[in-house]
Amino acid sequence: MSEKLLVGIDCSNCSNRALQYASGRAENTQIPLLVVHVIDWSPFSFNTPQENEERHKRREAELQRAHTEIIDPLVSALREKGIAAEGVIRHGHPAETLNAVAQELDATNIIIGKTGSSRIKSQLFGSVANTLVQISKVPVTVVP
């Protein structure tokens, strides 16, 4: 199976190191790169009727913002470097969704940055990196 990298991007500048690492590996090697941004969302949340009514509209706005402010500029910058980059935006639980996208689009390696949360916090609430390492079917690279 040919190689394909997936990099998870949190916001425009905080996953920079993960992105640098990924683009370093993709550059000059012809390995395609998926740039994935997950909008934190749960199908089991409790909403007011008003929120539900406007949900579709908000979702469109969230996707729009993720495109124009995060993914699109990154993808075009990568393409200028000659990397076959592709942007993906999804709603869902960050770790589970990254894993699902990786399976769906046949990524061979998932690259993410550390969030830098304290030990207590990540023990209590888990972290994207920890969860992903446990559930992923492909190797996960955590960039410090």
């Binding site: 539900n52 949900r55 979702r59």
Partner: peptide, 11 residues
């Protein structure tokens, strides 16, 4: 994903 789910409507 991101739209109103059955669970959310019920809740």
């Amino acid at each position: 994903a991101g739209e109103v789910t059955h669970f959310q409507a019920l809740a």
